[in-house]
Write a protein that binds this DNA or RNA. Structure first.
Lengths: 201, 201, 201, 201
DNA sequence: GATGAATGAGGATTCATTCAT
DNA sequence: CATGAATGAATCCTCATTCAT
């Protein structure tokens, strides 16, 4: 990589970091290209060297988060399906907690907004999460942890609802509780209840 | 009521209806006073006769929804706590379905946004829903349907998460399923699981 | 006067008083027909029964002040021209002090604004004051208090400048001094200096 | 300075000049960003590249005037205190005459309005003028032109009243006289009278 | 006389985006 | 690659005034 390319990367990262911090502290609604570039210490035009549209930087930031969570989850090799899902939940909410409530708010907004719900591959966040959870359950059937007649679609649906329900309510309540802690209780009661009938043996 | 007052009411309702329809079809982000008045067939200034700020009409539309749901729920005289909660869920999602996905999206957005989450009495949507559900559970304890040691706060929390989880996921999935139908399945499995240990007798 | 005519007068006075109070407390720039009528407890349209234009009520309020001052001054039967002018000054500033700084500000603004400087008779405030002072001086010549060769125009001009200079500076200084008190000192030094050469005998 | 920066300066100056001309011809009350930019031949948005708010351009125009007058006055090295003050008066009114009556009107309005009377350093126009004159008098005492017991505050006050009185009356009279000419007569009579008792020797 | 709903011109401000340098 | 001046569509909101009742 030439020195120039290196500098370019640094500039881009500076923009990404600045935008992320701004969202974390003020939310997305007041995010402006003006602010991002001013704080990043570059000219307004520079923004458009790296991002064709303002929304592109938001998408890229979110993609970063999703990737991070995905990595954590796929790397866990748990035997027990309940433990695995619990970990999924906890990792998810852990990430959410770290990113902060404003990011989480934008996350939900972007997830429910048809304009922003699709990532670059044309797959919606919804589908993405759905597939991921579905795979975990399918694997569990293969591994004979779950019965063959497990209603995968229904259960996936239920679990995702739990997950986003937790997030949404956390945002609604304005951080009155610790997401990680609650998720534990949550998982304990709900996951068991959901899967109870289908656990093998 | 004089003829004039009647006409004024009609005008206001026309504005409310137009705004609601616009939100339903295009979402709130592109809602403009210009459009509302143009479609309603009145002058731009007329809008400000009835609403001091643009947001006020949105608030009034939402308030209408909340009130409607509240009415339906408080009017149900069910014996069984599970049936009562199920009805709560179904009424809620039924309303949601009627209002349409765009209203539902704005609803969630407004519920998680600290700037708009508070109604005129300074109570957040979250607290409002929380109180309402908590009361249902408390009444159930009084009626000896639920055990005295029922962890009300925890359960209320779980149930609300379910509710908002359903809504959020419905919006995410871009209406791929019927909320009412799903809610039935949902309630059946989840509510029973949640309350199982605490049902008396 | 019929009962109806009486009520009409009351309504008009209510509007005048309300407008005056509003100007006193908030200045003229924020004065609106909306506020006047709302506070006066009448409908917006009622305003236009009594005043063709918003500015008309302002003009009428000011005219009231001017009339009041005029009355005080013309009623004084002082022998001495210096005493008479001193009284003119003091009455003027006394009125100004009573009306308050915000009225005074609007007064100056209206006096220097060509759009509002003319009263209903087409005479500007400037001409009005000029004529009044000129008459006082002319009378003094007739009464042989002042010499025949007194340069009336010049002196009138000087005196008016003093008067408005006091007012303007009072407004500029944001009331840091008592206009009445200052006017006394002011008159003592300045009037004597101005007239000194022309006093008879 | 690069060509671009030069062009930017030209654009800004164009805006300032246009605004100034508009005020000169129509007064400030009807000044709009729309007009300024349209006449200056730039886009509306360009205005906001150089001025955060509409009022900022007005402030900058006025500041220019004040600075100019200040310069002229501080640069005069007169021996005689009366001559010096006379020059102060004449310079002041000369500037006023050049700027025109509408600017002068806005000047007075801005000087008496508590919202706009303060410059960037938080000093009111009143204090500013007061300090400047006071210094002239103090220097005169040091130079033994004026007696030690000269009541500086009182005299400063009187002189400023004269100055603003002249201006106010000029605006009121709608330019019926030449300010410069009048100021000469004015100074001759008034300044002498004011200072007479305190001139040394 | 009194009402108050309706008007609509007018004005300030924002901000994503472009492009010549 | 970087700049930052310029753009102009978009939008909210104000308010004096009219007029049918």
């Amino acid at each position: 990589m030439t020195k120039r390319q290196e500098n370019a990367l640094i500039t881009k990262q500076k923009l990404l970091d600045t935008a992320e911090n701004l969202i974390k502290s003020n939310g997305l609604s007041s995010l402006s290209v003006e602010d991002i570039t001013k704080i990043a210490g570059v000219a307004k035009g520079t923004f458009y060297v790296y991002f064709k549209h303002k929304e592109d930087i938001i998408a890229e930031i979110c993609r970063g988060y999703f990737k991070e969570i995905e990595l954590k989850i796929t790397n866990t090799k748990n035997k027990n399906i309940i433990e695995k899902l619990t970990l999924y939940f906890i990792n998810f909410m852990n990430a959410v907690e770290i990113y902060g409530i404003n990011i989480c708010r934008e996350w939900i907004k972007s997830a429910i907004d048809p304009k922003t719900a699709f990532d670059n591959n044309g797959i919606s966040k919804w589908q993405y999460d759905f597939n991921m959870l579905e795979n975990i359950l399918k694997t569990a059937i293969k591994n004979k942890e779950l019965k063959k007649n497990t209603p995968i679609e229904l259960l996936t649906h239920l679990i995702i609802s739990q997950l986003y329900g937790m997030m949404t309510v956390w945002c609604m309540s304005d951080e009155v509780f610790e997401p990680k802690e609650w998720t534990k209780k949550f998982s304990k009661i709900q996951l068991k209840a959901i899967l109870n009938d289908y656990i093998e043996g």
